[in-house]
Each structure stands twice: as C-alpha cells, then as structure tokens.
C-alpha cells in the first residue's frame, strides 16, 4: 500500500504543512495578542461593553489563529472547518435568542417588588446548606448602588 517513500508523510497523499518556523511565528503572535488584551483592559474605551467587545475581538483573533494553524484547518479538508463553523453558528443562535428575549421583555414585576431576595427560603436550609448563605446582605461598599436595579437597563 505504501507506494512512495515515506519520510515525509503517510500514504494518504497529503503533503506536510506548517513546521517549526510557522508554528513559532504563530506562538509569538499569540503571546503578543495576550499582552495586547491585558493592556487594552487597562484602558477605558468609554463604556464597559466597549471593553468587553474589544477583549472578545482579540480573543476571537487568537482563537482563529489557533484553529487555522495549530489545528491545521488552513490545510485540512473543508468538511472539518465546516463542522467547526456551523458549531459556532449554532452557539451564536443559542446566545442570540435568549438575549433578544431578556432584553425585550415587558416588566411585569409587582409594584412593591424590591429586587431579588438573595437569600434562601427555609426549603434550602432543610437540605443542609444555606447556613453559609448571606442571609442579611452585607452593606454595599460606598458608592455602589444600594440594590440590584429592579428594572432592566
């Protein structure tokens, strides 16, 4: 079955890709991006969500690099990349729907509602845990909001 001399690769007819040099460059790029993401987190980009988005973009660049070179997707059969891409699509879908839902709900909380209780009822104490639970929430640090906002932002 082995028709060609194989100090290169096994008998699938694949050719070798990558190599120490390529992988070294990839590692250097990943380490650089790690430093960038740490530095970026110390800079205020205006809003908390902007910082999160920038951090996630950098993480996605890193993840793409890992997938393409370390995981060989760049040279691999397209089917494997398609499996991976469709996974990410369904993950996005999984996030998107509940996100749309929770951000477009009509608030139907009772008028005397004062935020979540943050304490267990007797039911959980019966099961033996809950003793450690902060039954009376500790006073919030100065400057922090007094309680969780009842309405959606």
């Amino acid at each position: 079955m082995s028709t060609h001399h194989t100090d290169s690769h096994h008998d699938t007819g694949h050719h070798l890709h990558g190599g120490p040099k390529v992988y070294g460059v990839v590692l250097a790029a990943l380490l650089t991006l790690t430093i960038i993401t740490v530095v970026a987190s110390k800079i205020d980009f205006g809003s908390a969500s902007a910082n999160v988005i920038i951090a996630l973009i950098i993480a996605t660049i890193k993840a793409t690099i890992v997938a393409l070179w370390f995981m060989h997707l760049k040279y691999d059969k397209p089917v494997n990349g398609m499996i991976f891409a469709s996974t990410l699509f369904f993950l996005a879908l999984f996030f998107a729907y509940p996100y749309i839902d929770t951000n477009s709900r009509t608030d139907v909380k009772p008028s005397n509602w004062k935020g979540p209780a943050y304490m267990p009822d007797s039911g959980s104490a019966v099961r033996g845990i809950g003793a450690n639970f902060p039954v009376a929430p500790a006073p919030p640090p100065p400057g922090a909001k007094p309680a969780e906002p009842a309405a959606k932002h």
Binding site: Y97, I100, D101, T102, N103, S104, R105, T106, V108
Partner: peptide, 9 residues
C-alpha cells in the same frame, strides 16, 4: 413570560 418580540419571531 417570554417577550412578545421573541414570541413573534
């Protein structure tokens, strides 16, 4: 209790 928008979609 899902939002009306989500229900419509």
């Amino acid at each position: 209790g899902q939002s009306d928008l989500a229900s419509a979609i």
